[in-house]
Design a protein around this nucleic acid. Sequence first.
DNA 1: CGTCGCGTTGACGTTGATCAATAGGCGTGG
DNA 2: CCACGCCTATTGATCAACGTCAACGCGACG
Lengths: 235, 235
Amino acid sequence: MPISVGRAAERRIEPALLGNSIAEDDDSRDGLNLLDAIGATMTLKRDAPLFCEGDPAQHYYKVVTGAIRGYKLLADGRRHISDFFLDGDFIGFHTLATHAFSAESVRDATLVRYDRRRVDALVARSPHISKCLLARVCTELSQAQMRMVVLSRMTARERLASFLARMAERSCGKPAAAIALPMSRADIGDYLGLTTETVCRAFAQLKSAGIIAAPSPHEVMVLQPGALVTLATGA
Amino acid sequence: MPISVGRAAERRIEPALLGNSIAEDDDSRDGLNLLDAIGATMTLKRDAPLFCEGDPAQHYYKVVTGAIRGYKLLADGRRHISDFFLDGDFIGFHTLATHAFSAESVRDATLVRYDRRRVDALVARSPHISKCLLARVCTELSQAQMRMVVLSRMTARERLASFLARMAERSCGKPAAAIALPMSRADIGDYLGLTTETVCRAFAQLKSAGIIAAPSPHEVMVLQPGALVTLATGA
DNA sequence: CGTCGCGTTGACGTTGATCAATAGGCGTGG
DNA sequence: CCACGCCTATTGATCAACGTCAACGCGACG
């Protein structure tokens, strides 16, 4: 979720190509931050559930610290991780009546919880927030389509590269600094449609190619960002 | 792809818990049908392009007859079909400034084309349409997450079963009637993350298991709907 | 100090991809 | 109407990527 840095709140509304329905220079983060007033802080222990697929959705959430995994299970236990939610990410704003996936914490986490009815009331009253919300959901849909390409057509090495490129992009604090990977190899595997072992081997391949270095299993340094992106985009 | 009920239900939006942000009633299709007044009919020859990924989005579309495939390409030509759009489907309502995927016709098609600015103006003036739109995009996102499970964790046979179950659900005219499959085996493969040959073999497996019958390569009859759904849901 | 959980590596099996050949439908042109 | 050619579907044979099973190392924690 590449959240572009938002602009000042007061922004001219362009009736241009996008008309009024979707904001192009999306300051949806700022828009949704207006919700903070009605949020309540909560904490979650490692591996603790946040909600389950199919549960009626009563709340929205924002991650403050820690990491949450959203996942879906097949009847026989096969798991797919829909998304990792890290610092600053919103969870659940695209849910309809019930949650479309389960969510639990990867590690100890603190969240802000928003009462759904109060948020919805706020959204209904503010066209600006409403636009931000729609733009955010559209962006997520577009990203989901990109992930489908990864899952359906990329090799293990390319999948891992695309995952690491996304993580690097997110933690864009310092360039050549180590990226934190809070999740386990099994989590990464379930996110990429691979097994733990294949993820390990893909890590080994990227390391021996000199593209990344891994001071520890949960830290990665990108040595050749260009090569990583090339792999990640399937060139 | 919700394998359960009919097409109307798929588009239905639950009233509960949605507060004011999302439709209270289930007529998102009706809501968007209000747009018909500003649409213009057009036709497209087989394999003709409708728009390309990255192009500025000037129009929205609705399929009247025929079939459209939306797809994304990797640099080296690997293709993933994001979705097939069949009779009655809307295309592009979740696009931001530019198209997130390319689209071309699977066979001769007729569409309704909507000018984007006029639609957006309409959306901006009508909270009802706006709610329908948001609900629709949320539903699509949820379906995309289901497809990711299919692509990341299911076998070839299960993937094909899930595709056929979706097609059966869509053409829910007569129960035991033949389902039309307008697209080629290669298209189905690119939709499911498989090769043409593997799709053929999966068809052969489902046929020899007595789950389906295929009067012709582009028609399928579901003989055991229960078995198909069981496979499709990964039980 | 022992155990447990996770990561890593190795050996081997299986699924689906690749390569290749054949068959069938359909349109075109004779 | 028939012959030809092209495109797609199908099937077979082989290959490779990834999954499975297993062993081991290492750090955390009791």
